[in-house]
Nucleic acid binder design. Structure first.
Length: 600
RNA sequence: CGGGGUAUGGCGCAGCUUGGUAGCGCGUCCGCUUUGGGAGCGGAAGGUCGCCAGUUCGAAUCUGGCUACCCCGACCA
């Protein structure tokens, strides 16, 4: 690539609409341009990076025998009608009509198309197992696109699906994908963690996410010190607390606690007027907080739900949503309270909660609330709370729910140490869909006995354009980007510092020659051969663009040497002109952690 | 969907309070000089001041309405 003719314009100043450092640099260095909110143009340099990420994904998918195909991005409505997703996706789907008024959509995901394609072509167990994939643009009309490529409305995704007759076969396909994903993310070169995840609205069992560890990530995950446990916070399963002996607990008794509608005011009132017998102060953890939310089911029906959690914890909205999906959660507002007169706002207790009690509202407890444990909680009357209310003796719930917030320092569910929380960017998600989806679309094959059996499926995704953004965010400094070798738009950046071919002929001649020699070795070379551009500008641009190895041909040519610069460390060294090609090859190939090695 | 902000040449911004020839920096083009860290001087091109209406002799500026975009939250890969 000759910079004198490359379609590129670097910006000296940050774009005003970019917030994240990596996004700013991708725009400034001329990799991408915003075309519309959440929609980006890939300029030549950016496209090179995107293609290299795609190539790594493609190589590893092919290596496990998955076969590539491409579905249209513009899809008919019918298949999505069959799985009810035309409705369930709601406003998140881009919809359009053709000239006859027939509905179409821009594919937000392609489960239906994959499943129907297999149904169309295959009908025997002998055809399976099968894994097929595509690398395709996906479209989601996000309520609020943000963070540049990390959450766009158009994005590039690799999605694959496995089709098996048996559960064992599905497990094998899943394991193969998991191993391929590990190789892919190793080659892409970022720090990632594999966490247990929720499988989402389509159901299914085993599910894991690959998260790039990053403070700017939108997902929260937890892990313990030994690494034996890691999970998306949504998927953490808190163990049921063991029952405790309640024989010494006095009978439950209602006390006046005026003006205590919050846990904070309640604890203060308890300590002022109802001192504990054991002399310890009351804390929020002694109270049972009952939170009411309104579930909105996909068919539009509304159902209130009561959740009991220890008073020192909040209900985690994401955990709750994951548990009740596909229902959505709305706040329980004043109108709802008015419609449920047995609920005394601020003093709600188990006395009225539960399907069998006066409110009729389903009541689910956090599993940390042990049978036999005693609580202070609302007495369902304004200004009154009940003390020594024992779970199992004085009240019961309709079940448990994993919806309380998970905190740093909580015990690890596998019993090994405590949990720490961190943030990550979801880069990949693999899960065993099972038969639910194939059933919806009636995907069956004949087995050895000539009987029709429903196929079992796995679903595996990687955010390809998101990977470019995540790599950029993780590989930059104050001067610009610093690409890992496996995804850099060029292997080496040759800078000719001359400004004028007439006067600096020897510099340009040598740089031309060197570029040709490097290209002859199969390297992708970005060559700054611009005239009338001062050396300072070329140096700044080379740092902004972030090719890992920079070769400067200039002044020192008089002494028969050129300069090789490491973009990441800033280290520079002089190398004799006739040794440069070998030296660069050594850097590019020797240092290629992951890509060439893992691919070999 | 709630809260906040912004809208002026390709990019970044000033001007608006107090109405009167639309400005600055970067970038682009021409000339001369310069030549290893975003060069200097001189010249030039490039703008329906988001849109609609109103007030006014006169609106980027004042008033009303609308729209778009950005950020935080809610929601989702």
């Amino acid at each position: 690539m000759r910079m004198s003719s490359l379609f590129l314009r670097t910006l000296r100043e940050d774009p005003a609409d970019a917030e994240l450092p990596g996004h700013r640099l991708l725009v400034r260095a001329g990799y991408i341009r915003r075309a519309a909110p959440g929609i980006y143009t890939w300029l030549p340099l950016g496209l090179k990076v995107l293609r290299r990420v795609e190539t790594i994904v493609r190589e590893e998918m092919d290596a496990i025998g998955a076969q590539e195909l491409t579905f249209p991005a513009l899809l008919p409505r019918e298949p999505y009608e069959a799985t009810n997703r035309w409705t369930e996706y709601g406003d998140n789907i881009f919809r359009l009509k053709d000239r006859k008024g027939v509905d179409y959509l821009l594919g937000p995901t392609h489960e239906e198309m994959f499943t129907l394609a297999v149904k169309d072509l295959y009908s025997s167990y002998k055809d399976l197992p099968l894994s097929i994939y595509q690398i395709q643009n996906k479209y989601r009309d996000e309520a609020r696109p943000r963070a540049g490529l990390l959450r766009g409305r158009e994005f590039v995704m690799k999605d694959s699906y496995s089709f098996d007759v048996s559960d064992e076969g599905l497990q094998a396909s899943y394991d193969a994908h998991r191993a391929a994903y590990i190789r892919i993310f190793d080659r892409l070169g970022f720090e990632y963690v594999i966490v247990a995840a929720m499988s989402g609205a389509m159901g299914g069992s085993a599910s894991e996410e690959f998260l790039a560890v990053s403070a700017i990530g939108e997902d929260t995950f937890v892990r313990n010190d030994s690494g034996s446990y890691a999970a998306n916070v949504e998927a953490v399963v808190v163990a049921q607390a063991a029952a405790v002996d309640a024989s010494g607990t006095p009978a439950a008794h209602v006390e006046d606690t005026p003006d205590t509608p919050t846990i904070e005011t309640l604890v203060a009132a308890l300590n002022a007027n109802h001192a504990r017998e054991d002399g310890r102060e009351w804390t929020a953890a002694d109270t049972l907080k009952n939170v009411i939310v309104m579930l909105v089911h996909p068919d539009g029906t509304r159902e209130p739900l009561a959740i009991g959690v220890p008073g020192d914890r909040e209900v985690d909205a994401k955990r709750l949503e994951a548990q009740v999906s596909p229902a959505e959660v709305e706040a329980f507002d004043e109108k709802d309270f008015a419609a449920n007169p047995t609920l005394a706002k601020g003093y709600i207790g188990p006395g009225v909660l539960g399907e069998e009690r006066s409110s009729g509202i389903r009541y689910l407890l956090d599993p940390s609330i042990a049978e036999g444990s005693a609580w202070v909680t609302g007495a369902d009357e304004h200004g009154k709370h009940v003390l020594d209310l024992v779970h199992g003796r004085d009240f019961t719930a309709d079940g448990t729910i994993q919806a309380a917030e998970v905190r740093d320092g909580d015990p690890s569910p596998d019993g090994d140490g405590v949990l720490h929380t961190a943030r990550g960017i979801e880069m990949g998600h693999i899960f065993q869909l099972g038969r639910k989806f194939a059933e919806a679309l009636d995907l069956k094959v004949l087995d050895e006995n000539g009987k029709l059996v429903t196929v079992t499926m796995g679903s595996y995704g990687i955010g390809v354009s998101r990977a470019v953004a995540a790599i950029a965010e993780g590989n930059l400094d104050e001067s610009g980007l610093c690409w890992p070798r496996n995804v850099t738009p060029a292997d080496v950046h040759v800078v000719a510092t001359g400004k004028n071919r007439d006067r600096d002929g020897s510099v340009f001649d040598k740089a031309d020659e060197l570029t040709a020699a490097l290209e002859a070795q199969g390297l992708e070379v970005l060559y700054d051969d611009r005239e009338k551009v001062s050396p300072g500008v070329k140096f700044k641009d080379s740092e902004l663009i972030g090719v890992p190895t920079i070769v400067v041909v200039g002044k020192s040519l008089e002494n028969g040497v050129v300069e090789i610069k490491d973009r990441r460390t800033g280290e520079r060294r002089e190398v004799a002109v006739d040794e440069v090609v070998d030296e660069v090859l050594r850097e590019v190939r020797g240092d290629a952690s992951g890509a060439t090695k893992a691919g070999a």
